[in-house]
Design a protein around this nucleic acid. Sequence first.
DNA 1: AACCAGTGCAACCGCACACGC
DNA 2: TGCGTGTGCGGTTGCACTGGT
Length: 309
Amino acid sequence: MVRSTCSKEGMNRGAWTASEDKILTDYIKVHGEGKWRNIPKEAGLKRCGKSCRLRWMNYLRPDIKRGNISSDEEDLIIRLHKLLGNRWSLIAGRLPGRTDNEIKNYWNTHLSKRGQGKERRPKSNHSTVEKIPITGRVDEEDPISSRVIRTKVSRCNEVLLTLNDQQHRIENLGRNVVISPSMDANLVQNIAAEPESSDGSLHTLTTCNEENCLNFMLDFNAEEISVSEIFASDFTKLSHDLGTAQMSNVMRGVDADNHTRKTAQSHAFMLAEEMEQNWSGCDYNIQAKLDSDFGSLIAFLESAEEWII
DNA sequence: AACCAGTGCAACCGCACACGC
DNA sequence: TGCGTGTGCGGTTGCACTGGT
């Protein structure tokens, strides 16, 4: 197999020009994304397909939010990195309008140094004043810039949290419900009050309030919780779409079609793309303003960190 | 003014995965 | 099942820019 490369003869390399950007943007507007390899030929660009894809994904898409990383976003990046490691696309999926490349660069230039105690705060406006990219765009005013950058989660190097601490289980309920140490006592009461699932293997809450955005962390008839799976799943959306009862079944692995647990998990994965739009809101009736409210996500991360520790 | 080191980030590279045949 | 292709991802590189000397 001949791998695509951007070093072919006759191909442009380096920074994109405004005209190249326009050609690519116009082409994608008409034909849509995909078939990147064909784009240079059909659009008349002297760029390789991968380069076109990268340029579009990272700079030309209308939903890209460019500019300074806010303190909330920075905090989120730090926490997510703590949980997920260098899985930039996954992290980017939780940051509306941010791309994996941007987050990766931000981490490498700012946050990793901070972790090493070498961080220097911006010494001048060099890094605090937003630079207008030579060929890039600044779309901060774009009303749709808050949309989540969709990143596909395909690689699965799972981060597994093994919960050996039995105090984190409500054994006396006779169910495998994993409880975060920080979980609200009322939530635990809700669990206790919840009718037991038919097979006793998994429990889900049907009540959820804004303070307790952790119920989707309840797992799953297993000793382990896969963080990556949680991040790649959309239990909230699932529950919203399917209804609470069906959601409960899906999470239990016995959905309406009597699919296996594995099927249900795959189901969650398949719906992962929808997750980014509203995953931070656990309340079935609340569509959180993801772009401005990181509270529930941070609450979850704090909880997850406690589990790890 | 010229040079140099540090910095930020766009772009590239190579690998891995998903999917269709 | 194996292979080829398309795509996504993370690591790395290269270059423009800035501030200090």
